[in-house]
Design a protein around this nucleic acid. Structure first.
Lengths: 102, 102
DNA sequence: TTCATATATAGATATGAATCTATGTGCGTA
DNA sequence: TACGCACATAGATTCATATCTATATATGAA
């Protein structure tokens, strides 16, 4: 049996990646991401109405993704617009989507 | 505001994707996947010794990934060898890895 | 400055997932 | 068949996350 060493650095990287994956591994959050790949930016109200969820729930999920660096938030008057921080997230989902066995 | 309709089908897809992401969104499980991209197949013992975790924990995590179709298990005598079911998972991780803001 | 709208946050509860410890099961071999 | 090794499973506990309801904060407009 070969000896594999997992460096402290790569463990940290794995935990970071796991954190980001956990942040998107939720049906509501994936739905939000999906909408934002099409709309570039949406307000909280637009999001919770489209997904038919509570306002507080939307806020909660958006906050989680913002904290993980997945979304950006920008206030414009009374509204706060959320957008994808980087479009590679769409690629990730597309990548998973293409798995034969999915 | 544009009207976005999320079909029943795409919701199911999102939940499926979320399920798979949740299955890999864990440091231990990502570490297992990482090892299996390098080793093609490993026994439970090899895995739990390398990662320095309990045997039961390894078994638990492996079972979760097997159930989600991420890993294959094949018995050979007393040992059971686990392997990646499709290599695109490595691509997914690589994809995330390449994100500038990660 | 008061009010309505848009969003965030707090607290309580429920749900789920991870972890630990112990025990059960399958397989090969003496 | 009896034993040891490799792995799986069960039950209890802990910990994290989601959900619900209510309330707080920020902004713009009357």
């Amino acid at each position: 049996m070969e000896t594999l060493t997992i460096s402290e650095q790569s463990i940290q990287k794995l935990e970071k990646v796991a954190g980001r994956l956990r942040a998107i591994a939720h049906p509501v959050r994936l739905a939000i991401i999906e909408m934002l790949t099409k709309n570039s930016k949406m307000s909280v109200t637009e999001i919770y109405l489209h997904l038919d969820i509570e306002q507080a729930a939307a806020s909660h999920h958006l906050n989680i993704m913002k904290n993980k660096g997945i979304l950006d938030a920008k206030r414009d008057g009374k509204k706060i617009y959320y957008s994808l921080r980087n479009t590679t997230l769409a690629d990730i989902i597309g990548c998973i989507d293409k798995c034969k066995d999915c």
